[in-house]
């Protein structure tokens, strides 16, 4: 028996918005530790990893591991029936072929009860190696969303360059080129801060497809800040924390010199 109750139902709604355009369906693995889902887009350029730890839920029970094979378009349609301040409960039997979704309105005068049919998805899971990142950058998530949108007007590639105390985003194309530089902000307390941590002082610069970066920023509403981790000849990691007990992470393979 699996049952998980999420007081902040909007978390699930927002997470689906950040997933459904990249991964059409996925196995949501439920265990006593929480719920995790991992999947790649059809062209295997980006890997999306969702982690919802058990203490994100105010009630969580998972007697035996349960796999929920979900079609994300369907899941998203059902979640659209939930109000942002609804409590959402997920329930499934052991070896389930369906999942029960319960939405309770904040003032408890409306409950919606949905059954979603599960599908068998044989999806390979990738092992994510520990990596020493050359640079870890934190920027306001709305700022990152705006930069990706603005630069993708210039071309299909965005170059992210990090050097001491500064991160630069640039794009070039037929119409011209653009470069946006963010300096590490002094006032480290507020959310508007930009922080740039370098492993060594060697600057690093990688090229990425702007289309995918714009897919990732669909998750912007999950967190005020987004963390970018870069390492030469490695995938970029774009992470949105979900409170203190979850995250939606994207790994994007770089464009490399032929």
């Amino acid at each position: 028996m699996f049952e998980a109750r999420l007081l902040q139902g909007s978390i699930l709604k927002k997470a689906l918005e950040g997933i459904r355009e990249l991964i059409t369906s996925g196995n949501w693995e439920c265990s006593s530790a929480g719920i995790s889902m991992q999947g790649m887009d059809p062209s295997h350029v980006a890997l999306t990893v969702l982690m919802l730890q058990n203490d994100l839920f105010d009630q969580f029970r998972c007697d035996r591991n349960v796999t929920l094979g979900l079609n994300h378009a369907t899941f998203s349609k059902i979640l659209k029936c939930a109000a942002n301040d609804d409590i959402i409960t997920l329930k499934a039997e052991d070896q389930p072929d369906e999942c029960n979704l319960l939405f309770q309105s904040a003032n408890d005068d409306k409950t919606s009860d949905f059954i979603i049919k599960l599908t068998d998805i044989d999806q390979e899971t990738l092992g994510i190696p520990d990596t020493e990142y050359a640079a870890t950058v934190k920027v306001p998530s709305v700022e990152f969303q705006r930069i990706c949108r603005d630069l993708s007007q210039f071309g299909d590639t965005i170059i992210i360059s990090v050097k001491k105390g500064c991160v630069e985003f640039s794009g070039t194309g037929e119409i011209g080129s653009a470069k946006i530089a963010l300096k590490e902000s002094g006032n480290v307390d507020d959310d508007e801060k930009v922080s740039v941590e370098m492993d060594k002082d060697t600057p690093c610069s990688l090229s990425f497809a702007s289309r995918y970066l714009n897919y990732f920023t669909k998750a912007t509403s999950l967190s005020d800040t987004v963390t970018l981790q870069l390492c030469p000849e490695h995938p970029l990691v774009v992470s949105y924390d979900i409170g203190d007990n979850g995250s939606l992470k994207y790994y994007l393979a770089p464009k490399i010199e032929e």
Binding site: M40, H44, V45, L47, I128
Partner: peptide, 14 residues
């Protein structure tokens, strides 16, 4: 010229 690499060339199947 830059080519798009694939995630599967960085992370192996677990």
């Amino acid at each position: 010229k830059q080519v798009q690499s694939k995630m599967t060339s960085f992370f192996g199947v677990a």
